[in-house]
């Protein structure tokens, strides 16, 4: 049983990791806690649903599922399109809400605004797609039996593989490309980056694109392995914050590691506490880490 919980923990942790990357980056670079970030997962998942039905109309080769998975090429294309859609939403929100507020008000005002944005985004999903659960596919899948009696679905293996691939890709991006290096520089000191000749506003748009794409992938993978529902992202708010805070704002590996810790502790907790209290586990993690490091991991605050 323990091994099964471990496997489930890693898998749900992978989804949290993907979502937490963007939250962690925006927390560090825009210096505000974005309560609407988790809604980008929901939007990613539902946007993929729309593109999935579009790509599925091509038929032929597109009808086939790949290997043991429940999905075929259309879902992969749909995921890519979902990343683009979610990035556009995030950039729109940045330009018309968060960036304007960061100039005129302050970072706490941005937090209120993120409450409002979260409400709008979540309930738009309900309005457009209804509140009933939806699935990408009705294909039946057979679990793979791993050593130790652990059962995983092929789609879950895909989820795990894609997460690892994404993290490696992002690692290379952050260390090998000039944009990635500039992003790390802006995270440490926006003003020094500016006087070095870095267009900080352009870099921040990149942060949103990466964060939103990670969120969209997390959302699609959640939809693929569990289901789509309007509260998908909302139920992940605390896990995402827990992962970002655990890992230290602005840190790619921190967010990924934080996500895994959150996923594992949630799933292992059910061996000790009633399952119904599982959603409180990330919150306890947040309290614990903040109790140890009360100034948090935002780094020095510059105002």
């Amino acid at each position: 049983m323990f091994l099964q919980h471990l496997a489930d923990g890693i898998l749900s942790g992978a989804i949290v990791s993907l979502g937490a990357i963007g939250l962690s980056f925006t927390m560090k670079m825009l210096r505000f806690a974005n309560f609407s970030h988790s809604e980008l997962l929901t939007w990613g998942a539902y946007a993929a649903l729309v593109f999935l039905s579009f790509f599925s109309t091509f038929g032929g080769f597109f009808d086939q599922t790949i290997g043991p998975f429940s999905f075929g090429l259309p879902l992969l294309f749909a995921m890519a399109c979902a990343c683009i859609t979610t990035s556009l939403i995030a950039m729109f929100l940045h330009l018309y809400v968060f960036d304007r507020l960061s100039r005129s008000a302050g970072h706490m005002t941005m937090v209120f605004a993120s409450f409002g944005v979260a409400l709008v985004l979540r309930h738009l999903v309900t309005l457009i797609w209804g509140s009933d659960p939806i699935y990408y596919s009705n294909e039946l899948q057979f679990a793979i039996l791993l050593p130790g009696g652990v059962r995983v679905m092929p789609d879950q293996v895909f989820l795990f593989g894609l997460t690892i691939f994404t993290v490696i890709f992002l690692h290379l991006f952050m260390t090998r490309t000039r944009t990635g290096i500039a992003m790390r520089g802006v995270a440490e000191s926006p003003s020094l980056a500016q006087v070095s000749g870095v267009n900080v506003n352009a870099i921040i748009l990149w942060v949103w694109i990466i964060g939103a794409s990670g969120a969209a992938m997390g959302g699609v993978l959640y939809g693929m392995t569990i289901q789509l529902r309007p509260e998908l992202g909302f139920s992940l708010i605390l896990p995402l914050f827990a992962a970002a805070i655990l890992g230290g704002a602005g840190s790619l590996y921190g967010a990924v590691l934080g996500g895994l810790i959150v996923g594992l502790s949630e799933n292992l907790s059910v061996m000790i506490i009633p399952t119904t209290y599982k959603p409180a586990v990330p919150f306890l993690l947040i309290l614990l880490i903040l109790f140890i490091r009360p100034d948090g991991i935002f780094g020095e605050r510059k105002r």
Partner: peptide
Amino acid sequence: PQTGNVFTTLSIHENLIMGGASL
């Protein structure tokens, strides 16, 4: 600048890359 004149979390080489961001 007086304080925070280098990116402490970046390598020396990456600091120079930052300096050439506009080139």
